[in-house]
Design a protein around this nucleic acid. Structure first.
Lengths: 187, 187
DNA sequence: GCTGCTGATGTCAGTTGCTGTCATCACTCT
DNA sequence: AGAGTGATGACAGCAACTGACATCAGCAGC
């Protein structure tokens, strides 16, 4: 299992983020990223499905951890409570705040990267919905609970990466959940 | 303002949907669509920003109508009530159920089309959130109310296009809103 | 120490989405 | 009839992505 230089994937990820942040996503060519990482363009596409995916390498793990926490929620939990279990775990997986900030900035600057992020989040929502249904939650209930959880996650995450925010991610998640409850009480 | 044959845009939209539905999105080339519509590939890109956008031509109008309805909600409405006004209007704009069914099928079959749809929906959510903030609703409240509205919209729309569903779209929206309220009451 | 296997990488050719540029055409107005 | 205008065609070109095949490093067995 030898390689010429170890961790080609890690070098590609680092090179891509630097170039995207420094000169913009569209202005960066895959050949540039590969060159900076010391490999060829073809090798880039062996590690990542496309030019965007390089920014979303850790997303499977986030989903796995979220689902595990959701599955570990007490059997007596309501659907939205089980989702809250999962989301609190998801947000505590994100450790490096400065890295998240930089990555978010790059994504926010390019619609096609936003699309990919939205797809990942939709996948997380669908997976949570499926997990809820396996707990016996009806489909519509499961879907609305899961998507509400994703909204809470993103709103808390965005505030967590905002400048001047000192609260922990879990605190922000709880605040978003509380606000969601207040919002829907207005119906 | 003359043209060789009128409604090139309409012909391109029809040709694209047919080909996407019949042989798949990725198996269809832009040159094929253009040829079927009787124009060149270059003309396709004059009407649509990219190969995916041809399926999302009516989305701006949907957003405009939704925002207008939201703005017309009584001043005494809560944030989520104002959103409900907008969403009920949005769903009643979708007239042709069979067309929606076919289009949804094509989109569901291809992740890159799902990405584009998610981006459009996120845009609708952001616009509703901005409209709510102009009504004096605080940012976090506005965002959660708007995204909840989008979830209600998509869940109702998907059920509306499901086989064997006979209820009207507005009925389904109201049911989704009621279910959302029940779900968040579990917190 | 040599050999053969395995998996990662390089090389290359090709398709397709998409863009810039400029000529050309149909139509309108005077 | 002639000039102007806006849509279209023709063409060249770049970059993302893919398939096929050669090649190389390192390991196992002899």
């Amino acid at each position: 299992m030898g390689r010429w230089e170890p961790d080609a994937q890690g070098r590609l990820r680092g090179a891509a983020l630097e170039l995207y942040a420094h000169q913009g996503f569209e202005q960066t060519t895959v050949a540039e990223i590969a060159a900076r990482a010391g490999v060829t363009e073809r090798t880039f596409f062996r590690y990542f499905a496309d030019k965007r995916e390089v920014l979303f390498a850790g997303s499977e793990q986030l989903q796995v951890e979220t689902l595990a926490a959701l599955a570990a929620a007490p059997a007596s939990s309501s659907a939205i409570e089980a989702v809250a279990f999962g989301i609190e775990r998801a947000v505590s997986v994100l450790a490096d705040r400065e890295y998240s900030r930089q990555r978010s900035k790059v994504i926010a600057a390019n619609p096609s990267l936003q699309e990919r992020e939205l797809l990942k989040l939709a996948g997380l929502g669908a997976a949570m919905s499926a997990a809820l249904q396996q707990r016996g939650v009806p489909p519509l209930t499961a879907r609305l609970a899961a998507e509400a959880g994703v909204s809470v996650f993103t709103s808390a995450f965005d505030r967590w990466t905002a400048d001047g925010e000192s609260r922990t991610s879990v605190e922000l998640v709880r605040e978003s959940f509380a606000e969601l409850r207040t919002v829907t009480a207005g119906l």
